[in-house]
Design a binder for these strands. Sequence first.
DNA 1: ATGATACGATACCTTGAGTATCGCAAGTGC
DNA 2: GCACTTGCGATACTCAAGGTATCGTATCAT
Lengths: 216, 216
Amino acid sequence: MKPPPTVCKGKWGMREMVATKIGRPRSEKADTAILRATLDLVSAKGYRGITVDQIAAQAKVGKMTIYRRWPNKAAVVMDALLELVGPETDFPSVPEASQSLRLQLHLQVKFFKSKYGMLIRSLLAEAQSSEELAEAFRERWIRPRRLGVVDILKKAVAQGQIRPDIDFELATDLLYGPLYYRLLIGTGPITTKFVDSLYQQFMVGHQSGNIGLRDR
Amino acid sequence: MKPPPTVCKGKWGMREMVATKIGRPRSEKADTAILRATLDLVSAKGYRGITVDQIAAQAKVGKMTIYRRWPNKAAVVMDALLELVGPETDFPSVPEASQSLRLQLHLQVKFFKSKYGMLIRSLLAEAQSSEELAEAFRERWIRPRRLGVVDILKKAVAQGQIRPDIDFELATDLLYGPLYYRLLIGTGPITTKFVDSLYQQFMVGHQSGNIGLRDR
DNA sequence: ATGATACGATACCTTGAGTATCGCAAGTGC
DNA sequence: GCACTTGCGATACTCAAGGTATCGTATCAT
């Protein structure tokens, strides 16, 4: 009847239980083994292509050890993404902000084409049927990255490369919407040429000097 | 041992069995009842929120009657979308092609915000784990609509509203990528203002007279 | 009427997420 | 040392849902 001392119920953030002082401590090794196995399996076969039992097996861990840390399968995958993905898509440090933006778009392409692309696709798919996951994905994955974009756009404005009347939210959608579109729908490959043209079109519309629709 | 005379195996297109001349004919009523029930249920509760048994119950039909026509749940939903969606998002007939494009974007917004938006989200989500469904979705939903976009863009070029050096595929991604992005990720609402700004930015980059990036 | 197929209903199979429990391991406090 | 508490791997289990099989009946062509 009594629930196990520490079970993760309904929490989507990383397993952040209050560290109890008594009893056997959590195994740090198990944590990383689970996340590692999850990352490998999901990126290889996709979210629906694997089972929690497979994760447990590959991590050499009991299934309960997983559910003691995360409330469900999606939460594990989410944390696998957040914990193991380093600064692959950080904005490169170059003097010109607009160039940093352009280079970051290329990093984003590389990221989407890597095995991590499957993680994004999987989570986004699952998020369509779980408002809870959708919320977590927006807050923990999308939002921080969008803040980074706005940040660099503001620098570009300050450096006079982009018009000051820019709508930052819209601009972010214009830049990354087409990338996610191709990632999810697959109408065309996400190529270097594609992202170059994307950037180019964006700058035509936003750089200083182009005021807007010309008179006709 | 012998399989039922006519069962739908692996076919994703609409139930298009060769009309056998003998035996009891397929009930046309059942077809529409199933599609109708599917549409109503999925748009209300989402793909994962309903079961095939519920569809059968609401359509007052045996479950086998469904699986005799479609190979799986996703295929039913796909056909429900394609069969019951009329020309809601056709390009309005107005003299200026660029205006037709603008008006169609507004129709698209209305469509995404209607109950059909849930169908698109659902199918796209499921398609992430089924290359077969992804293919069907691209060919039967995305592609025809993209052809319509390219068509109207060509008219706009012919009418001198858009530069002739436009990349049609890229342009389509630029226009609809951000819409799908918001539909699926939900970073912001899909408003009239949003789509107006989207169109405006697009035209700044593509209308005749703006040649490209200015010198710096 | 006969033969073939579709029908609704129901029981069934299978897979996989999530739970419960058992005996053992690894810590803390005395 | 010893009791106490919690985590561990393993295993068995529950349950929901997609998909299949079958039964008796209904509806067509000939």
